[in-house]
Amino acid sequence: MSTNNYEPRIVVFACNWCSYAAIDLAGTSRKLYPPNVRVIRVMCSGRVDPQFVLEAFKNGADGVIVAGCRPPSDCHYINGNIKALRRFTLFKRLLEELGIEKERFRLEWISAAEADKWVRVVNEMLEELRRLGPLKAEAVSV
């Protein structure tokens, strides 16, 4: 694979009640965006174990998004989003220490109505990932 036709792959963990619905809405309202995202539905951003994100990177994801309801109080489960905020704030610090570019991970708050925000987040992240290239160094040389 050459870097010219490098297509980054983004794994998304989306809260059933807000972000997953926003991604549905983007489709329903035919807001087009690049097909590089793979969405995994969870009931709450608070369900997302940092191990899942690590597993995604390990298996070749170039970027990961965890998307939930806007803090402090939009969470369908009271404060699952706050648990996600706590975990992934520390997680970002870990990635920084391990030398993984911060652009590769995003914690985003996308309400059910924010299809536009979803499209913007995907486009922004893809642009950044294209600039960075693949996470696996090996893939560059192949």
């Binding site: 793979r38 995994i40 969870v42 369900r47 899942f52 995604a56 298996n59 070749g60």
Partner: peptide, 23 residues
């Protein structure tokens, strides 16, 4: 573990989402 959203179930989706190594 959460029924319907167990670690192994989500992990399986993650692996499949990334091509499961067959990128």
């Amino acid at each position: 573990q959460q029924y319907g959203f167990k670690d192994i179930q989500i992990m399986a989706q993650v692996v499949a989402a990334t091509g499961g190594g067959i990128k």
